[in-house]
């Protein structure tokens, strides 16, 4: 299985799940040892978080540049896997865009969560104002350039300090000149700087793959049914993504969207009592995005399947995995 990652305090478990699924499939197809890959061959979860949904909720595009900027408030792991693997078919590599580097200067918990949301909001206002000012100067290229330069000078300090992004006035002015705020963020966050082929990881087997989901509409599977399905998929050498794990205090069936978590299931065991071989239970090996220490603590991530499913809002398509088209 791929390396174990950490999402820090951000709501990007969905992107980590997608990165792990894509990495596992690449390793399987290319017959590579997934645990030994250099950063240049690792999908960047941070970059995948940019494609948490199609632009404007429309058609899925194959162009990375048409997607949203960094999104830290949760997303759909299956959608990101589908878009990342089967539509755009690539992401920036970890060498070019990694969370440990982005977070390295953030000094309070607030800066990693609430304040960042406010920062995005302020940047959006600044971007909108610059576009408005530029529109008023249309017909005068030099005047328009001055608008973007002024916007850059006004915002560079905050961008450098709070986002830990190295940028100069010229680059920031160029970012302000982008036609949409999404593209502005792409430039700002370095995702657009990670467009060279050498900065990319490619999903190799996209033409021959589909993304299957379970259960389908109208199905009401039991725990045994779900364990059987997971076991069946794992038997093909591929992991399974599981969304909708409820981490809040509420009942899983009525779980608040902000309490939902997603993981990858990479193994299955049946554990039976020694004195009663018929008394058995299912266990799943989970690949979580809570860092290697969490994983080690649970002997590699082995959890009781019944417990996990009891805490999961089971609805159609909650499981997903890559499968051969034929």
């Amino acid at each position: 299985m791929p390396r174990i990652t950490s999402q820090d305090g951000l709501g990007i478990c969905y992107a980590h799940v997608a990165a792990t699924m894509m990495q596992a499939e690449n390793c399987r197809y290319l017959k590579k040892n997934c645990a030994q890959l250099p950063e240049s061959e690792l999908f960047s979860p941070l970059d995948l978080s940019r494609i948490h949904r199609p632009e404007d909720g429309g058609e899925i595009s194959t162009s990375r540049s048409s997607y949203q900027g960094l999104y830290i408030e949760g997303g759909d792991a299956h959608d990101v896997a589908i878009i990342g693997a089967l539509a755009t078919r690539k992401s920036a590599n970890e060498e070019c865009l990694s969370l440990d580097r982005i977070l390295s200067k953030m000094n309070t918990r607030g800066e990693t969560v609430e304040s960042q949301t406010q920062l995005w909001s302020r940047l959006k206002q600044q971007y909108d104002q610059a576009k408005k000012d530029a529109k008023a100067q249309s017909g005068c290229d030099e005047c328009v350039n001055n608008v973007y330069t002024t916007a850059a000078e006004k915002n560079i300090s905050e961008v450098e300090k709070n986002l830990n992004i190295k940028v100069d006035n010229v680059k920031l002015a160029k970012a302000f000149a982008n036609e949409t705020f999404s593209k502005f963020l792409d430039d700002l966050l370095g995702a657009s700087a990670c467009r060279k082929p050498s900065q990319m990881v490619y999903f190799e087997n996209a033409d021959n793959l589909k993304y299957d989901r379970y259960p389908s509409e109208g199905q009401n599977p039991s725990l045994d049914d779900m364990a059987k399905k997971v076991k069946e998929v794992l038997g093909t050498g591929r992991p399974v993504a599981l969304a909708n794990i409820c981490l809040g205090n509420e009942d899983a069936k009525s779980c608040k969207p902000e309490h939902l978590h997603a993981v990858v299931i990479a193994g299955y065991r049946e554990i039976c009592k020694k004195n009663n071989p018929k008394d058995c239970r299912h266990a799943f090996k989970v690949v979580n995005s809570w860092g290697k220490s969490w994983q080690d603590e649970f002997e590699g991530g082995w959890v009781d399947a019944k417990t996990l499913i009891a805490h999961t809002k089971v609805e159609p398509n909650v499981f997903g995995w890559f499968a051969d088209k034929k």
Binding site: D8, G11, I72, E73, W290
Partner: peptide, 19 residues
């Protein structure tokens, strides 16, 4: 914030450390 993140990572900040 409207999401949970990694609870141990978040706890670092509660103790006065950075994660």
């Amino acid at each position: 914030a409207p999401f949970l993140g990694n609870p141990a990572a978040n706890y670092c900040w509660d103790t006065g450390a950075k994660n």
